[in-house]
Computed example of a mutant assay.
Amino acid sequence: MLKTLVTGQLSLSMTFWVWGVCGGLLIGLIGLAGVYTGYVAFLPLTFLMKTVLFGGVLSGITFILRRKITVLGTLAFFIILIQLIMSVVMVIGLSSALFK
């Protein structure tokens, strides 16, 4: 399933909404649950998982846009790109919690 995501064989809506939005939300909720239960070091790991997920989604959207460029595809590309950049920044910023 991950190979079809990364290579852009899924539809744009499946790639963006299911994997990008719902997957990112699910991983974010797992990180939030870690914070509320006292496992603060789990938060940087969830941002690392988000970075990997958003990288795969961005790759899939890029392959989809290679076949046909659409306005919604371009918008999805930039939204996921911003999410990927924010995840990388958060991993770097929160890495001190891992190595404390």
Rank of each mutant, 00 (worst) to 15 (best):
C22E: 15
G28Y: 10
G38T: 07
L53E: 01
V6C: 08
I80R: 01
T74V: 13
T62Q: 02
K68L: 12
R66I: 14
G73T: 08
A97S: 10
V89E: 10
T4C: 11
G93K: 09
I79M: 01
Y36S: 13
F47G: 00
I61Y: 00
F78H: 09
F47P: 02
S13T: 15
L58H: 02
G34Q: 05
L2E: 13
I92R: 05
V91L: 02
M86Q: 11
G28W: 07
V40W: 09
S13K: 14
R66M: 06
K50L: 02
K100E: 15
L75Y: 09
V52M: 07
S95A: 12
G31D: 02
L5K: 03
G8P: 00
S87T: 05
V88Q: 07
G34D: 11
L43F: 08
L5T: 09
L48G: 10
G38Y: 03
I27T: 08
L12G: 11
T4Q: 11
F77L: 13
A97P: 07
V57T: 14
A97K: 11
L65E: 06
C22R: 12
V35C: 08
T62H: 07
T70I: 11
G93Q: 10
F42E: 09
K100D: 13
I80N: 02
L58N: 06
L98W: 07
I79L: 03
G8H: 01
V21M: 03
K3T: 15
L58T: 10
I92T: 12
G60R: 00
G38V: 01
V21Y: 01
I61H: 00
Q9K: 10
L10P: 07
L75V: 15
G34W: 02
R67H: 10
I27D: 05
P44I: 04
G38H: 04
G31K: 03
A97N: 12
A76S: 13
V35S: 08
L2D: 15
T7D: 12
G24D: 01
I82R: 05
Q9P: 14
F42N: 06
L94G: 05
F47L: 01
L84W: 01
L32M: 14
I27E: 05
K68I: 15
G55F: 04
M14E: 15
I69G: 00
L58R: 03
S96Q: 12
I80L: 00
I79Y: 02
L65A: 06
V71D: 11
I30A: 10
V40C: 07
V57P: 03
Q9C: 07
V40P: 04
T4A: 14
I92H: 06
W17K: 10
L58Q: 03
L81E: 05
F99S: 11
L43V: 15
Y36F: 14
T70P: 01
I79D: 09
L29G: 10
L29M: 15
S11P: 14
L94D: 05
G23S: 12
P44H: 06
G28I: 04
I30P: 04
L48Y: 06
S87E: 04
T51G: 13
G34P: 04
L94A: 04
G60Y: 00
M86R: 06
T37A: 10
S96C: 10
W19V: 07
G20Q: 00
W19P: 05
V57F: 00
W17A: 11
F47K: 04
L12I: 15
G93A: 10
K3P: 10
